[in-house]
């Protein structure tokens, strides 16, 4: 079994109003060192390997559903899932 960790974030060119609100709040708390905040999503998929490479399958899922590439970027890592 493979565990896939997917990060979906807004593209650089897209304004992130949530991130901006959090940054302003951090500044109000006196964390002046914060230059920027971007908020994204984290998804974990458990995948049973098939005859297709996991990377190909996950890429396809990201393009079709998990991310909207008009406004979002995605990246993922695949690791062996620890079975209990």
């Amino acid at each position: 079994m493979m565990k896939v960790k997917v990060h979906v974030t807004l593209r650089e060119s897209v304004l992130d109003p949530q991130g901006t609100a959090v940054k302003n709040s951090l500044h109000a708390m006196n964390y002046q060192e914060v230059q920027d905040v971007r908020i994204g999503k984290y998804l974990e998929l458990l995948i049973e390997p098939s005859d297709r490479p996991v990377e190909d399958v996950v890429k396809e899922m990201c393009e079709k559903l998990l991310a909207n590439t008009v406004i979002e970027n995605y990246e993922f890592e695949v690791e062996e899932a620890v079975t209990q």
Binding site: L10, V14, P17, Q18, N68, V70
Partner: peptide, 16 residues
């Protein structure tokens, strides 16, 4: 938009 019948995408309202 999500289906691709129209171009572009929707973001959260600027004022949240």
């Amino acid at each position: 938009l999500e289906s691709g019948l129209l171009p572009g995408a929707m973001l959260r309202n600027q004022g949240l």
